[in-house]
Design a protein around this nucleic acid. Structure first.
Length: 560
RNA sequence: UGGGGCGUCGUCUAACGGUAGGACACCGGGUUUUGGUCCCGGCAGUCGGGGUUCAAGUCCCUGCGCCCCAGCCA
């Protein structure tokens, strides 16, 4: 086949070409321009990874710029959270900027636009503008204010800025073409009157620039070379170009790519905000949320997210990634970095009847079989233990390898045990197992080389640390909740399972909040900041589960 | 149906006129003190129809399908 060189995506190719033609003097300068009107989500992470990694790859710059041109939706809390998220992903911006830093400059440019006859003050109401815009197939009608003398426009625009007019009474509009086939070119609004308090400029302004006007200017002012954005802005590129050309200023190149979609979740800030506002989740950082902060709290690592973004690529076609792809990247990263511990989520008491009462010992356990340098630890063992309820069946099917009456299994790093007796309560619920251990199998190997079918995790009862575990499942039950009439109807009522009688090995007392750890045979977990009297662990992602798959197949009758 | 985009395994994504490859998923098998990891193998794709060419996923024509646009949101 070809070389092992990684193929380059279309944006890299455009930049390579620009560097050959020296279009931007071989500079590469990108930016990530979030509006601070919500928290960042995994979809934003794609844009972040793209823009920052492009800058890194070409030895260029990437700015973090808040596109704060709409004071009504924007808040400082979001500004703070967004910075935290970008940093957490591992990126350092070359400069932190705000669109609002350029409000004066943008205003001055708008005055230039009026002076050159390219913009006019329009007295039409929002409804009237809408009514005269035309439709996809019909041309719009020109505003009766379209041909006001420049002098009058200048006067009116100044007075707009000075606060003489109420909200919505007038706008500054670009004079382009009301019959243009691109709706964005039908005399778009450049400035609207908004007597609103801005999170940074306070009450300095009562007119605010529209996105199309502001964004290109921000890029131009900062010297951005390649302005990367998502596909829905493709229709806006003509207006981006028109403004910059009309002004005769430095002209970056806008390039659009397909945003990330993930199955079984939503990627809309509006909907995410609704989940938060209506308390369907505990907050923007609820571990079930596809937000960066939610994923962080859930136990995702920056490396997992970045590797995922690297794997999914950059292209222009609409896409919906399967969640399994994200989880695969997650497990891959967690597997190599996580230390292993033992914890029992649904405890079942086991009494080792031939183990001396009152005695205990300590056994050596490997911290990470994937990484010898992680070392070993001691785990206490005693006569009474807890094992997972799911690991015992009184009358198991052939393919169930775990513990059953009369069966022998290995306890990880400990002994072989055989179950001799099942103790039940009056409702015939199993309350306790009586087993015997083979002292010869200490550490987990039998001198006579006999084998067992499986190995179980366990926790010594008297040494166990009580804990609570939160298991998460997908937040939505349908593949594309965002495209439903009402996405709330797709919420999975079982997205959160609370387990409050969990038992952990004592070493887990030292777990740090947010630090990922593998509970052997169960999955990856991390301690939640919420802990009350008991520590709380979030299940980040379960282990791949061949037995669960087999069980499912047996239920559906494919196997037996 | 005006304009702008996009159609390659189930899902993503490569192949710049020269053997359609990789990842995830799925299905088998091996190793294993995690039914994990790891290893091996398998399944599976160029939207349709014409054309150009020795050769087409790639170029041309044509048809079909999907996405975006009528905020004083971004």
């Amino acid at each position: 086949m070809k070389e092992h060189t990684k193929s380059r995506h279309f944006i890299q190719r455009i930049i390579d070409e620009d560097n050959v033609t020296e279009k931007f003097d071989n500079r590469v300068h990108t930016r990530f321009p979030p509006e601070p009107n919500g928290y960042l989500h995994i979809g934003h992470a794609k844009a972040i990874c793209l823009s920052f990694s492009i800058a890194e790859e070409y030895g260029g710059k990437c700015y973090l710029r808040f596109d704060d041109t709409n004071p009504i939706a924007e808040e400082d809390e979001y500004v703070r959270a967004i910075q935290e998220d970008v940093k957490w992903l591992g990126y350092e911006w070359d400069k932190l900027c705000f669109a609002s830093d350029y409000f004066q400059q943008m205003y001055d440019y708008a005055v230039d636009l009026v002076k050159s006859g390219n913009a006019y003050v329009c007295d039409l109401t929002a409804d009237e503008i809408k009514d005269t815009r035309g439709s996809l197939t019909e041309a719009g009608k020109e505003s009766q204010y379209r041909n006001r003398p420049i002098k009058e426009n200048l006067d009116l625009f100044t007075r707009m800025k000075d606060g003489e007019f109420p909200d919505g009474s007038r706008t500054l509009r670009a004079k382009i073409d009301m019959a243009h086939s691109n709706m964005n070119m039908r005399d778009p609004v450049v400035y609207r009157i908004l007597h609103a308090h801005h999170h940074r400029t306070k009450d300095d302004w009562c007119i605010y620039p529209m996105y199309d006007w502001a964004h290109g200017l921000e890029d131009s002012i900062e010297g951005v070379t390649h302005s990367l954005c998502s596909l829905e802005f493709e229709d806006h590129r003509p207006i981006y170009d028109w403004y910059l050309d009309a002004l005769g200023v430095y002209h970056p190149q806008q390039i659009e790519f397909a945003r990330l979609n993930l199955s079984y979740t939503i990627m809309s800030k509006r909907m995410l905000k609704q989940l938060v506002d209506e308390n369907h989740v505990s907050g923007w950082d609820d571990p079930r949320m596809p937000t960066i902060s939610g994923l962080r709290r859930r136990g995702y690592t920056p490396a997992a997210i970045r590797n995922f973004m690297e794997e999914i690529g950059i292209a222009k076609r609409d896409n919906v990634m399967e969640m399994t792809k994200l989880e695969s990247a997650l497990r891959q990263d967690l597997n190599k970095r996580c230390e292993r511990r033992m914890a029992v989520l649904n405890p079942l008491k086991v009494v080792i009847t031939n183990y001396p009462e009152g005695e205990e010992e300590t056994l050596e356990a490997v911290n990470n079989p994937e990484d010898e340098s992680a070392g070993k630890r001691q785990v206490p063992f005693s006569r009474e233990l807890f094992i997972e309820r799911d690991d015992f069946m009184e009358d198991p099917p052939k393919k169930f390898f775990r513990l059953g009456l009369g069966r022998e299994v290995r306890l990880r790093y400990a002994y072989f045990i055989t179950c001799n007796n099942v103790v039940k309560d009056n409702d015939s619920n199993i309350t306790e197992l009586h087993c015997t251990y083979d002292p010869e199998t200490k550490g987990g190997n039998a001198p006579d080389r006999r084998k067992v079918k499986t190995t179980l995790h366990w926790v010594s009862a008297k040494h166990a640390v009580d804990t609570e575990v939160r298991k998460y499942d997908r937040l939505f039950n349908v593949p594309a909740p965002g495209s439903m009439e009402n996405f709330l109807e797709a919420i999975n009522p079982n997205s959160l399972t609370l387990l409050n009688n969990c038992k952990m090995e004592p070493e887990l007392k030292n777990a740090k909040v947010g630090e990922p750890v593998q509970f052997e045979r169960l999955g990856y977990f991390c301690k939640d900041p919420d802990a009350g009297d008991k520590p709380i662990f979030n299940r980040t992602v379960p282990m791949r589960d061949a037995w669960a798959k087999l069980e499912k197949q047996m239920q559906s009758g494919k196997k037996n």
